[in-house]
């Protein structure tokens, strides 16, 4: 009887251990294939679309001069440009100025002069259904 109880405890511990050790990750709020509109919340509503998610992240943690350099690898698209979400990295963009990490969103531009190109934008630059979910 005692042995059975001991085995039960060990089994429960083994079952629970991986679940407890696994870090709690906040899920990405975007859905692949979702159609969205790009619009920046900063004073200038145009949106930078970066060629890599690394540059997107670095841009938001950089000084003004560094930003100038990094921005050479980005397109500036007009507010209201339509796009489709192709991928998402939850909490990838971290900055000393952000109160919490933001998502890096991979988009396929559907309108504007860069139509047909893909790039990376900040989670907070994405409007539409995505933004509604975020709120």
């Amino acid at each position: 009887m005692r042995r059975a109880a001991f085995l039960a405890v060990v089994l429960i511990a083994l079952v629970l251990r991986p679940a407890a050790a696994k870090p709690a990750a906040s899920p990405c709020m975007s859905r692949i294939g979702q159609h969205v509109v790009l619009y920046s919340v900063s004073d200038d509503p145009q949106v930078f679309v970066f060629d890599t998610k690394i540059r997107l992240r670095d841009y938001h943690a950089a000084s003004v001069d560094e930003m100038q350099e990094i921005a050479k690898h980005a397109w500036l698209v007009a507010p209201g440009t339509r796009a489709m979400i192709v991928t998402c990295e939850p909490g990838f963009v971290q900055s000393p100025y952000f109160s919490r990490p933001d998502d890096a969103i991979g988009v396929l531009l559907l309108t504007g002069s860069h139509r047909g190109h893909t790039g990376w934008v900040l989670g907070s630059d994405v409007r539409g259904v995505y933004h509604d979910i975020h709120r």
């Binding site: 920046s40 919340v41 900063s42 004073d43 200038d44 145009q46 930078f48 841009y59 938001h60 000084s63 003004v64 930003m67 100038q68 921005a71 980005a74 500036l76 900055s95 000393p96 100025y97 952000f98 109160s99």
Partner: peptide, 17 residues
């Protein structure tokens, strides 16, 4: 335009701080 956007973004971040 790009420069203006960069300033705008950066200022926004600083003001947020």
């Amino acid at each position: 335009d790009k420069s203006n956007k960069i300033f705008s973004d950066y200022e926004n971040e600083v003001v947020d701080s």
